[in-house]
C-alpha cells in the first residue's frame, strides 16, 4: 500500500456521519432516561435506539473500510507523546464507537425490549431475557458512554488546538472546507 497523504473523501464523510449520529444519540440518551414514564419517553427511547443502531451500522461500514485503507500519517513536527496519544485515542474511539451501541443493544435484549429498527425491521435479541444482567448492562452502557465522551472532548480539543495554535492542517484535512491558510 502506498502511504496516502490526505484523508479520502470516504474517510471524511464516514468520520462526520458517525460523529453526527453519536452526537445526536448521546444527549438524547441523557435526556430521555431522566424523564418520567410517558408516551413521549417511549417514543424517545425508540428514536434513541434507532439512532444508536444506525450509528452501529455506520461504524461497521467505517471499520470495514478503514481495515482496507490506511489513514495518512500524522502531520510531521509533533512531539512523540502527542503522536502516541493521538493514536491511542483514535484506536480507543474505534473500540468505543463499536462497544457503546453494542452494549445498548445487549441491554435492550436482556431487559426484554427488542429493537425494531425505525419501527420496521425487527432485530434479533443478542442475548436472552435476564433482568439482572440488563441492569448491569445499563451501567456498562453509561460508563462506556461517558468514557467515550471524555475521549471525544480531548480528541476535538486537540484538533481545535492544532488549528488555532500550531496552525497546521490537522483539522482542515478532516474538515476540508475550513482550509488552513498558514504555511503548512
Amino acid at each position: 500500500m502506498n502511504t496516502p497523504t490526505a484523508y479520502t473523501r470516504s474517510a471524511i464523510v464516514l468520520h462526520w456521519l458517525v460523529a453526527l449520529t453519536i452526537l445526536c444519540a448521546f444527549p438524547l440518551g441523557v435526556y430521555m432516561h431522566e424523564l418520567p414514564l410517558s408516551p413521549n419517553k417511549l417514543q424517545l427511547y425508540s428514536y434513541h435506539k434507532w439512532l444508536g443502531i444506525s450509528a452501529l451500522l455506520l461504524v461497521a461500514i467505517r471499520l470495514g473500510w478503514r481495515l482496507g485503507h490506511r489513514p495518512p500519517p500524522l502531520l510531521p513536527g509533533m512531539p512523540r507523546w502527542q503522536e502516541i496519544a493521538a493514536h491511542a485515542i483514535h484506536h480507543s474511539l474505534y473500540l468505543l464507537m463499536l462497544a457503546v451501541p453494542l452494549s445498548g443493544w445487549l441491554m435492550s435484549s436482556a431487559l426484554g425490549f427488542s429493537v425494531v429498527w425505525f419501527g420496521v425491521i425487527p432485530l434479533p435479541d443478542l442475548i436472552g431475557k435476564d433482568k439482572q444482567l440488563g441492569e448491569l448492562l445499563k451501567d456498562v452502557h453509561a460508563t462506556l458512554n461517558f468514557t467515550m465522551l471524555a475521549l471525544v472532548l480531548v480528541h476535538a480539543a486537540a484538533a481545535i488546538k492544532h488549528h488555532l495554535f500550531e496552525r497546521d492542517g490537522t483539522l482542515a484535512r478532516m474538515l476540508p472546507f475550513i482550509k488552513q491558510e498558514s504555511k503548512t
Binding site: 417514543q43 426484554g112 425490549f113 427488542s114 429493537v115
Partner: peptide, 8 residues
Amino acid sequence: KQMGVPVE
C-alpha cells in the same frame, strides 16, 4: 406492542 415492539 410499544412503538411496534412486542413487550411481554
